[in-house]
Structures are given as C-alpha cells and as structure tokens.
Computed example of a mutant assay.
Amino acid sequence: MKLVPLGDKIVLKQCEAEETTKSGIVLPGQAQEKPQQAEVIAVGPGGMVDGKEVTMLVSEGDKVIYSKYAGTTVELDGEEYIIVRQNDVLAIVK
C-alpha cells in the first residue's frame, strides 16, 4: 500500500531517536526524547486549501524539522508515519 496525501498534507517518516548522549551515556527507551527530524515520504498537490492558494515548498526525500506535537501518527505495513500540514514543518535540513 501507499499513502497519498491530499491538499497541503505531507507524509513523514521519523528519524531514529538517539540512543546515547554526547558524553556516551546509554538512554533507556522511556528516556529517549521523540526526535523532531523526519524524512519526507510523500507530498500533497497543494492548491486551494481553506480558501488560500498553497504552493508546496518541500519535496520527497527532503529532511525536515517539524513541530513537536504536530500531525497524526498512522501505521501502514508495519511502518509508522506522521501526516502533517505544510505549516507544521519548521525547516528543511540541507
């Protein structure tokens, strides 16, 4: 199956959480902070959304930073994805 976002929606796959700190301390699963960096898997067409013209500024394969509590988490074929609106994406990592 494949996720195809509508309007100004973007499908993200979250990057893996850091398991050790910079000083080398190994973190257990509960102590790991949810990463806010993800890879763009699919991008909606944009167009008219809520009465405004939306041009999509991200593309598939981009690494992005998104708002901490943004989006809806879905699971498809054993993989976890996050669907967010374009305005929930804060920056593109280059």
Rank of each mutant, 00 (worst) to 15 (best):
K22W: 07
K22E: 13
S23G: 06
S23W: 08
S23M: 10
G24C: 10
G24F: 10
I25Q: 14
I25N: 13
I25F: 14
I25V: 14
I25L: 15
V26A: 12
V26W: 08
V26L: 12
V26R: 13
V26Y: 10
L27W: 06
L27E: 06
L27F: 07
L27V: 01
L27R: 06
L27D: 06
P28W: 00
P28S: 05
P28E: 00
G29P: 07
G29K: 06
G29C: 00
G29V: 04
G29D: 05
Q30G: 01
Q30W: 06
Q30I: 11
Q30T: 09
Q30R: 04
Q30E: 10
A31H: 04
A31Q: 07
A31N: 03
A31V: 06
Q32F: 02
Q32G: 03
E33F: 02
K34P: 00
P35V: 04
P35I: 03
P35S: 11
P35H: 05
P35D: 08
Q37E: 14
Q37N: 12
A38P: 01
A38I: 08
A38N: 11
A38Y: 12
E39R: 15
E39S: 15
E39P: 00
V40H: 03
V40N: 12
V40F: 03
V40K: 07
V40P: 10
V40S: 13
I41K: 13
I41P: 02
I41V: 15
A42M: 11
A42Y: 04
V43M: 14
G44Y: 05
G44W: 01
G44H: 06
G44M: 11
G44L: 11
P45Q: 12
G46T: 05
G46L: 11
G47K: 01
G47C: 07
G47F: 05
M48P: 00
M48N: 08
M48A: 05
M48Y: 03
M48F: 04
M48D: 06
V49G: 03
V49K: 02
V49Y: 05
V49N: 04
G51Y: 02
G51T: 01
G51K: 01
G51Q: 02
K52G: 00
K52Y: 05
K52V: 02
E53A: 09
E53L: 10
E53H: 07
E53F: 06
E53C: 02
E53T: 08
E53W: 07
V54E: 11
T55R: 14
M56N: 12
M56H: 06
M56C: 11
L57E: 14
L57A: 13
S59E: 15
E60N: 14
E60M: 14
G61R: 03
G61M: 06
D62A: 09
D62K: 01
D62H: 15
D62Q: 06
K63W: 09
K63M: 14
V64M: 06
V64W: 00
V64D: 00
I65W: 00
I65D: 01
I65N: 02
Y66R: 04
S67M: 09
S67D: 11
Y69V: 00
Y69R: 07
Y69M: 03
Y69A: 03
Y69K: 07
Y69F: 06
A70L: 01
A70T: 05
A70V: 05
G71D: 01
G71A: 03
T72K: 10
T72H: 04
T73M: 02
T73R: 02
